Amino acid sequence: MKVEEIEKRLRKYLERDRSGIRKTLIGILLDGNKYTTEELHRKLSENGYELNPRGVSAMVGLMSARLGILKVEMGEKNRYYLKKEYEGLVSSILREYDK
């Protein structure tokens, strides 16, 4: 997928983010670490978001399959992380949404 297409999809994804949870989740993933859905659920809960772990699974699944910005490290528990090649793009788009 081309960078322009990923940028367009990411912008649409964030425009529909009424609560800010999508932006927060992407911000968590920007730190370069790998997370299980349980760890992401805990971090989102610590930020005041109320959703179940399955909701987090759905969000990371969509971000991986539809947006193409996440990678999955398969194992007993899958770990998700932001693809290195999109860190700059994602970071700059998030900064725009912080304004």
Rank of each mutant, 00 (worst) to 15 (best):
K2Y: 08
E5W: 00
I6F: 13
I6L: 11
E7N: 08
E7R: 13
R9S: 15
L10Y: 11
K12D: 13
K12Y: 11
Y13C: 05
Y13G: 04
L14G: 08
E15H: 14
E15D: 14
R16Q: 07
D17A: 04
S19V: 09
S19T: 13
G20V: 14
I21F: 10
I21D: 07
I21T: 15
I21K: 07
R22V: 01
K23L: 15
L25F: 07
L25Y: 11
I26A: 00
G27A: 12
L29Y: 06
L29E: 05
L29I: 07
L30I: 00
L30R: 06
L30M: 02
L30Y: 04
G32E: 00
G32W: 01
K34H: 04
Y35T: 01
T36M: 03
T37Y: 07
T37A: 15
L40C: 11
L40E: 10
K43T: 11
S45E: 15
E46K: 05
E46R: 11
N47C: 08
G48F: 03
Y49G: 07
Y49R: 09
E50V: 13
E50P: 08
L51M: 09
R54D: 04
V56I: 13
V56W: 03
M59L: 14
M59P: 00
V60A: 02
V60S: 05
G61H: 02
G61F: 07
G61R: 02
L62W: 05
L62H: 11
M63K: 02
S64N: 12
A65S: 14
R66M: 06
R66H: 15
L67T: 13
I69R: 11
V72Q: 12
V72A: 06
E73S: 03
E73K: 06
E76D: 09
K77R: 15
K77T: 13
K77Q: 12
K77P: 12
R79A: 01
Y80G: 08
Y81L: 10
Y81M: 09
L82P: 02
L82H: 02
L82I: 01
K84P: 15
K84L: 12
E85R: 08
E85Y: 02
E85M: 04
E85T: 10
Y86K: 04
E87R: 03
G88V: 06
L89T: 06
S91Y: 05
S91E: 03
I93Y: 12
I93M: 01
R95G: 07
R95T: 08
Y97R: 05
D98S: 07
K99M: 04
K99A: 04
